[in-house]
Design a protein around this nucleic acid. Structure first.
Lengths: 214, 214
DNA sequence: GCAAAAGTGTTTATGCTACACCCATGT
DNA sequence: ACATGGGTGTAGCATAAACACTTTTGC
């Protein structure tokens, strides 16, 4: 039986949450859109395979990566029996290097504009999205989508896009600050706002802290 | 590559949460304790395989079954490269039929008295336990461990054993009742208590309701 | 009657929501 | 000066925690 990995890669461009898809260059289903994936090699675990695939696609290592679920329907691959271990990854979209892009014809898609995907990839994307929402409500996850230094309004717009709702800025601010995971810098970011927003950065290595957005 | 399933089967005997383990009757690691598992056949999905395995072990179909995680370390099986899709299942321990038991030398173990297990099964058990706690805090899951008709004090002792803590009976009662998922019966259960406890039953098919224990 | 466990009520504390208000700056 | 978006303060509401109280029965 063949064992594959498929990755739902999420990014945030400042406006919308997006997912990275590639146009397949090989059979079956050439020229159709799909998640980035690959086969698990004899000398690697699935996690290693997923990291390898992501490195190949984005040029980046050490991305936030989490195993989602394994898809095993008998006929999910029309050619040969294949089980696929689905992952989702979070990436700072601005670190994504365009140069490797062309090789795979990769593109970022807004989540409500996803094209038809091969096999059971639509289901993987949906599950990835659900898990992202579910987990981000309790864990500091979405920071992985932002640069090291960002602003609170930007973080809020990310949460609002992920949860498709609006949050009260006062309550949002208090909730996020109260986690103790953010450090307010002295500098402000003055682009696109009359006042300016304080830059904040994220303490990545606090373990065990959880929070819910308001 | 070989694809297997392994199931962490939980039960509740009225006192403690327990897990069902078997003594392996075949190589490798004969006579050692392990989770109940099996190989995914060419004509079945992993879910079907897990259900088949559970049916073989317990004689029961339609158990609560959920995919946990897939274990893929290269050398996790010393004989041949095998990936294992781990599941956890919840069972009303009293429906478990002893007759099929002997075939596998199955036994229930308290979670703090689990013997050495083969391969990465200890990790599977730990992850299963974590997921059970995590999910039961938000979803009506633990009812699956009880008979159709049970009492509130019994439910509370189940929660207390799962979370290794004590809950206030008043607050617990209100919280559980407020979910609207329980029906208080007219009858009482008079065994082992001076007053008696009202029997309650569980409305299984309410979707979307969630709750947190107090 | 008394002990023991079931079940109910009540007070207090906490946290969340909504919304009003102030602040800094570009035009 | 004023419009705009950033940031802070606060009153009211809803929920949760702690604990006192009542009920029912076996002994």
């Amino acid at each position: 039986m063949i064992v594959a990995v498929d990755c739902s890669v999420f990014g945030f461009d400042g406006q919308h949450l997006k997912i990275l898809l590639i146009k397949r260059g090989f059979e079956p289903c050439v020229e159709e859109w799909s998640l980035m994936g690959g086969f698990v090699q004899p000398d690697e675990s699935a996690d290693e395979a997923a990291n390898r695939v992501l490195k190949t696609l984005t040029g980046l290592s050490g991305l936030y990566l989490e195993q989602l679920q394994t898809y095993t329907k008998v006929d999910r691959d029309p050619i040969e029996r294949t089980v696929s271990i689905a992952f989702f990854a979070l990436i700072d979209i601005h670190q994504y290097e365009q140069r490797l892009n062309d090789q795979f014809h990769a593109e970022w898609f807004k989540l409500d504009e996803i094209p038809d995907l091969i096999f059971d990839h639509p289901q993987m994307v949906q599950t990835a999205r659900q898990k992202l929402r579910y987990k981000a409500a309790l864990h500091p996850l979405l920071f992985e989508l932002l640069p090291q230094r960002f602003t609170l309004p930007l973080l809020q717009s990310l949460f609002e896009d992920v949860y498709e709702t609006k949050f009260d800025k006062g309550n949002f601010s208090r909730k996020i600050i109260s986690t103790g995971m953010l450090i307010k810098q002295k500098e402000k970011d003055r682009a696109g706002s009359k006042k300016g927003r304080f830059i904040i950065s994220w303490i990545k290595n606090i373990t065990g802290r959880t929070f819910t957005p308001s």
